[in-house]
Structure formats: C-alpha cells, structure tokens
C-alpha cells in the first residue's frame, strides 16, 4: 500500500495544475479574509469571536468549489488522456487504486487547506487588530480546523463524483449541483419540508463545522452527515469503477 500511495503522490505532484489550483486556493482564502475583515473593522459594534472567525473564513464556499474541482480532476484527467488504462494495468485491484488516490489526495489537500484556513484567520485578525479573535477562544480553533476539514471533504466528494462521471466538465457540474444547487432546491420544497430537510443537505450540513451560529445539528453532527454524503458517493463510485470496462 505504501508503494501505491507513493505512486499516487507522484501523479498528484507531477501535474502543474495541482500546484496552481492549490496556490489559487490560498489566494482566494486570504483575499476574502482581508476584504471581509476590512469591511467589518469599519463597523462600530463589538463583534463576537465566532463572527469574526466566520468572516475570515468567508471564502469557504468558493474554496470548496476549487478543492472539489481538483478532486474531480484527479481522476477525470486520467480518463481524458486514457491514462486510466495504464493505471489499471499497474493496479488491477481498482478499489485499492481508488483508496490510495483518495488517501493521498486527502492528506495533501488537508495540509494545504489547514495552512490556508489558518493564514486566512490570522490575516483577518491582523486587520481587526484588538477587535479580532484568538485561537484560544471557544469554538475558534474548531471553526478554523473545521473549515480545512470541510474543504478536504469537498475535495473527496469531487473525487467520488469525478469517478462516477469520468469527465472533467461533467464532474464539476455534478459538484456545483450537489453542493450549491441542491440546497436551493431543497429550500423550495413546500409544506415545511424544505426547512426540515435543509440541515441535512450536503454543504449545509458540512459547513456547520465552521459556523458559530446555533443550528438543528451540532457542528460535528453536521460534519458527520456531510461525511455520509461523501461515503455514499464514494461507494457508488467504487461499485461502478469495479464493474465498468476501462
């Protein structure tokens, strides 16, 4: 398995788009943190630690799209080039290949996500100066680390959808539909169904972990529900990957 992880790591790091995409992620996270906090710093009222933290992590929805796209690309680029056949010749046990890819991808993006979330938080607090929050305040560390976890989860979700769709554009559309459009659609369901189901929908549940506001699900329960979504997508991807002709 070590060899497989090294193999997938070489694939991931030897593509320029990986590094560009992750650099883009850092830029987006930090610039949103800076601008959001700059706007907040002009307001008169006193802000809660949770609120300023959330502001600093304001780019999370966009960042999730970036990481999820990278997840899609991690497998769809193999299908686009036909390299998937070379990969499956080397590793015919397809479940293992997917597990190694997911592990490598998650480990790499988690590190970058943690760094960019922490950087965004620190930039935001630097802008706010004495009115900013610190990591020691209740919930702040959970929100910052949680943001990184959510982004990593979104990346794995993208990887699963990319494996299902086998196509870059199609995979990214699937990500947008499930993470962004689906909550809107569910919200429009009649007779209060929308409000009842909303807390359990993909990104709504997942982003509880980086929220300071009270909700139906606790932060970790929300993230747990998001993990179930990822697991379901990954299971479907695994079944199809094993059954399909490459």
């Amino acid at each position: 398995m070590i060899g497989l992880l090294r193999s997938e790591w070489i694939k991931l790091r030897s593509i320029r788009s990986t590094m560009w995409t992750m650099a883009g992620l850092v830029v987006v996270m930090i610039s949103f943190a800076y601008l959001n906090s700059a706007i907040a710093s002009r307001q008169a009222e006193r802000l809660q630690a949770g609120e300023v933290t959330q502001m600093a992590l304001g780019a999370a929805p966009f960042a999730s799209l970036i990481v999820a796209s990278l997840g899609v690309l991690a497998i769809s680029s193999e299908y686009r080039t036909g390299m998937i056949r070379t990969t499956l010749l080397a590793v015919p046990r397809r479940g293992r290949m997917l597990a190694a890819k997911a592990t490598t991808f998650a480990a790499f993006t988690l590190v970058v996500n943690l760094l960019s979330c922490l950087a965004a938080f620190l930039v935001g607090q630097a802008v706010l100066g004495s009115r900013g929050a610190s990591l020691e305040e209740p919930g702040v560390l959970r929100m910052v680390a949680g943001c990184a976890l959510y982004l990593t989860g979104a990346g794995l979700f993208g990887l699963a959808l990319g494996t299902l769709v086998r196509h870059t554009a199609g995979g990214v559309v699937a990500v947008i539909v499930t993470l962004f459009v689906l909550p809107q659609l569910v919200g429009m369901l009649p007779n209060g169904a929308g409000a009842r189901l909303m807390p359990y929908v993909t990104s709504v549940a997942g982003m509880r972990i980086m929220s300071s506001a009270p909700g139906v699900l606790t932060p970790w329960a929300g993230f747990g529900v998001f993990c179930l979504w990822i697991a379901a997508a990954a299971l479907a991807a695994l079944v199809l990957l094993r059954g399909r002709d490459a």
Partner: peptide, 21 residues
C-alpha cells in the same frame, strides 16, 4: 498516447514503478 502530457517520462514511469514495488 494514453499518458498525461504535463508529466515527464521519468515521472510517468516512476508512478508505475512505485505502484508495483
């Protein structure tokens, strides 16, 4: 031609080598 154009020949073969120990 089933290879990724952005990768070098060495990295292409390296990923195959590592996957099979």
């Amino acid at each position: 031609k089933s290879v990724h154009g952005g990768r070098s020949a060495r990295n292409h073969l390296l990923y195959l080598a590592y996957s099979n120990g």
